[in-house]
Amino acid sequence: MAMNVGYITRETARNLWRNATLTLASVLTIVVSLGLLGAALLTRSAVDNATDRWEEGIEFVVWMNPDATPEQDELIRSTLEQSPAVDSFVYANQAEALEEFKRYFGDQPELLDNVSAADLPPSYRVVPRDPDPRAIDELASTFEDRPGVRDVSSADEIIKEMQRMGDKIGNVALLVAIVVLGIGLLLTLNTIVMAIGSRQREIEVMKLVGATNWFIRIPFILEGVVFGVAGAAGAIGALKLFEEYIINELNSSDTIVLLSGFEVSSAQFSQTALIMLLAGIAVASIGSGVAVTRHLDV
């Protein structure tokens, strides 16, 4: 079927202008809903990143000096192996530490260039037998002053709380996002129905002279898609600000040291942005699709 591209672009643009206020309302609703969706996904990724190394029962990490001698290293290992309070442990050597570093800072090549495996501390990630926090503290502190040990960090209650809160905030934001997304869908539907109504006469003439249904429908559906794309663009912009001013702020906070690692990689950001774009287009085209199939039949 021959389609006049110029005609379709012109009609879509005209529809958008004709209903400026409703158009704005629809787009802003989509911006808000997608923004919430993105913030929820991004917060979840950040929390996951921040608490990554504390999974599977690991309660504390013994960081060795990068230049610790093999003897110092061996001593720590044998202590861990023999201690009745230790259930199990995982050793991450310098190569693995570099892998982990790359995962966190993969989007900052200038940082990667200046780091080699030799600069990074190997570590023992320890799963204690007794889950009682005081017992864990006690066990962890026995490693603090050993030769070759740089630092011991614990996954205390704050980390666990952070995981719980992160999940909770994420779920609430997700729920609100879905509700607002539904409102966006209904608003889009309504806007398109209004646009169809204001062009009743043109549509009548088009049908009389034999324009196909799709030819009549496409400008209206495209209008919906434009809502979705515009909404997603606005929301992704807002999310970029959210990442820069909230997530990175928390991450570099001196008072909340635990939040170091609370950040997202650019790959995670792009993935979130893509999900937002697809969700926006899906919601808006469902809205406009329903509008045209309900109100535009032969």
Partner: peptide, 20 residues
């Protein structure tokens, strides 16, 4: 059933435009 915002020529052209 003419379209009030289109000229005479545009009204007639419309019938051809919309059938491609």
């Amino acid at each position: 059933k003419l379209l009030p915002k289109k000229t005479v020529a545009e009204n007639v052209a419309f019938a051809l435009e919309v059938i491609g």
